[in-house]
């Protein structure tokens, strides 16, 4: 049996409890929270967890409104192979 964890970030196995603990420690803006708790730093880069985290932050009384609302979006929008990137144009 798997244990009844509530996984909020599947890529990095970050649980709801982890995010609450980080908020409690004072990481109340989304960027710091992400770095401490680890959500959004894996292969999907937050596609699957961001709205759930924001809902949690809004709900948590201590945090109030996060100081920075949205995470900075970085390329690539989907993972890309190094071999493709290394390709040279002909001529």
């Amino acid at each position: 049996m798997t244990t009844a964890k509530t996984i909020i970030c599947r890529c990095e196995d970050v649980t709801e409890a982890d995010v609450r603990a980080a908020l409690h420690l004072g990481f109340t803006d989304l960027e710091s929270l992400k770095r401490y708790a680890g959500f959004g730093t894996g292969p999907c880069q937050g596609k699957g967890c961001l709205s759930a985290v924001r809902a949690l932050v809004r709900e948590t009384a201590e945090a109030g409104e996060p100081t920075t609302q949205r995470l900075r979006t970085r390329p690539p929008a989907v993972p890309v192979a190094l071999g493709a990137l290394a390709g040279k144009e002909e001529g």
Partner: peptide, 21 residues
Amino acid sequence: SVKYHRPRGYFCGTGRCTGCL
């Protein structure tokens, strides 16, 4: 999964998550 080795599978169907890696 990376940390706890929880079983994962088909989930989003659109290539966004990591369940089918």
